[in-house]
């Protein structure tokens, strides 16, 4: 399910706006996202589309990403789509504050995790994202790391709802 932020911004705040700035704007947009989420199964990935968003400031990022993850990240999958480099700066700042992480696809189609993360978990996620589903043993072999450490990292990623279980082991979130 794709949730277009600019459409929500213009529906909930003003049809004239194209930037996600100010905390009240972020609160209104988060409310709009939460309305869409009500119709979504918990196992479906909510793709939050930043593709047509101009400026994103930290206050708005805190509402639209930080608080959204704090309140729904335990029970839902989120993927940020179409994020620009400038969006990443604001989002990373917020994620560091809350010690959260989220999967993001940039405008060139590259997928990565934003937010603070253990290095083994980051490497494991990158491999899953680049090469497709795999189990802990396969990833451990590719990374030259102990399988137990990789298994632990994968379970941590799963707990943060950044990867899902698959028939082959684990797979990175994608839409």
């Amino acid at each position: 399910m794709r949730i277009d932020l600019k459409t929500i911004l213009q529906r909930t705040v003003s049809s004239l706006y194209g930037d996600l700035v100010t905390r009240p704007t972020g609160q209104a947009v988060r409310g709009g996202i939460e309305q869409v989420l009500e119709a979504l199964d918990g196992e479906q990935i909510a793709v939050i589309d930043f593709g047509t968003v101009g400026c994103l400031d930290i206050s708005c990022a805190d509402e639209v990403v930080g608080k959204l993850l704090l309140q729904h990240g335990q029970a839902r999958y989120f993927l940020l789509h179409g994020v620009a480099a400038s969006h990443c700066e604001a989002i990373e700042h917020v994620l560091e504050r809350h010690r959260l992480a989220v999967v993001a696809r940039d405008r060139e189609g590259r997928v990565r995790v934003l937010g603070p993360m253990d290095e083994t978990a980051r490497l494991a996620f990158t491999l899953l994202s680049d090469r497709g589903p795999a189990d802990a043993d396969e990833l451990a072999s590719r990374l030259s790391l102990p399988p137990e450490a990789v298994q632990q990292a994968l379970e941590a990623l799963r707990g943060q709802r950044l990867v899902q279980r698959s028939a082959d082991g684990y797979m990175a979130l994608s839409a």
Partner: peptide
């Protein structure tokens, strides 16, 4: 080029300081 957005972000936060 991406610094323009960061500049707008910084300006936005400075202005919100007044409002908030």
């Amino acid at each position: 080029a991406t610094a323009t957005m960061g500049f707008a972000m910084a300006l936005s936060e400075a202005c919100q300081n007044i409002v908030e």
